[in-house]
């Protein structure tokens, strides 16, 4: 029973729910601010994403005539809930360890697919042709990046499992415990292909500029979310904010979870790592590249990240 309450609290308060949402929005604020500074602008206030969400709460939700109303209104909710649960699975070294019942890498991988699927369903339920284009692009992109992600996860799991004398372990707590005693995977040459593949994966998963093809606002007018307004649009913003925390947290857990033993220190180091990962992987990449075409992105993913991921899996199994 206490077990279930702990899981519930993790989903609703920390590290899911309120905490993940606030952190995701704050990261977005920092991202926009730093981006503005890099372009020598002043930029919005750091709290801007919070203002945006509150603003959207005051607007009206419009349902297009061509849309399937139930699906249209409730899919974003599914996305938000899945991301809140996913946020409760992400371990924070020496601060939070997910309950053994849920803290599994495979569960996290499945949950991470849901926002993409939600976008696809939302786009097609809205009845807009732009939504339909967004749907097909999202699907193509998902096919391209899910493969490398699964292989990366498998590489990490097998490396940990073999290190611990078994075959493969998908428990996030074990993965972190192993790295704490044997050193982070980031400094393990055997894991470098996997690290590189992950660096390609997360901008695509988060829809950052070279890979924001499904939502390209200048071509398909934000694609799947074109018809959403007011509170339902706010749900999408919440979903992507929490997703950012989940994906970056996953990266930290898989490759560099080392942190001091204390509670405050652990949290602080985790936040710093997250901010660095975001600034390098998202802000700078976003500003310095242009958007790819969907076919280019697809080929790109099937070439480099997939190759790297396969290589990492092979190396891990052989070494």
């Amino acid at each position: 029973m206490s077990n279930q309450i702990a899981i519930l609290l993790a989903v609703l308060l920390f590290p899911g729910g309120v905490f993940a949402l606030a952190l995701g929005l704050a990261l977005k604020g920092v991202d926009r601010r730093v981006a503005a500074r890099l372009q020598s602008r002043v930029g919005p206030p750091l709290m801007q994403p919070f203002f945006d969400i509150i603003k959207l709460g005051f607007k009206r939700t419009m349902v297009p005539a061509a849309a399937n109303e139930t699906v249209f209104l409730y899919t974003p909710l599914v996305g938000v809930v899945s991301m809140l649960i996913a946020a409760a699975l992400v371990p924070i070294t020496s601060v939070y360890a997910p309950d053994a019942a849920i803290g599994n890498l495979l569960v996290l991988l499945y949950l991470l697919m849901i926002p993409g699927i939600v976008l696809m369903i939302a786009g097609s339920a809205s009845g807009s042709p732009y939504g339909a284009i967004g749907f097909s692009r999202e699907m193509a992109l998902m096919i391209a990046y899910e493969g490398p992600l699964v292989l990366i996860a498998a590489a990490v799991a097998i490396r940990t499992g073999m290190g611990m004398g078994g075959w493969a372990t998908f428990s996030l707590n074990d993965i972190i415990a192993y790295q704490q005693t044997h050193g982070a995977f980031l400094f393990d040459p055997v894991m470098w292909p996997a690290v590189a593949a992950f660096c390609f994966f997360y901008p695509a998963n988060l829809g950052i500029v070279p890979f924001d093809i499904p939502e390209a606002e200048t071509e398909v007018l934000e694609g799947p979310i074109i018809e959403y307004s007011g509170p339902t649009l706010a749900l999408f913003k919440v979903m992507s904010a929490v997703k950012k925390v989940v994906v970056l947290g996953l990266g930290i857990a898989l490759f560099f979870p080392l942190a001091p033993e204390s509670l405050v220190g652990g949290l602080l180091v985790w936040l710093i790592k997250m901010a660095v990962l975001m600034l390098i992987g998202i802000t700078v990449v976003r500003l310095s590249t242009g958007r790819m075409r969907i076919d280019q992105a697809f080929v790109f993913f099937l070439k480099w990240p997939l190759l790297l991921a396969v290589a990492s899996l092979a190396v891990v199994v052989v070494v």
């Binding site: 503005a36 002043v42 930029g43 919005p44 606002e217 200048t218 934000e222 959403y228 649009l233």
Partner: peptide
């Protein structure tokens, strides 16, 4: 000129 200072953002869809 940076209108983002005022919190403005150009959006692609009229619904936003």
């Amino acid at each position: 000129y940076d209108v983002e200072r005022l919190g403005c953002q150009y959006c692609g869809s009229p619904k936003h």
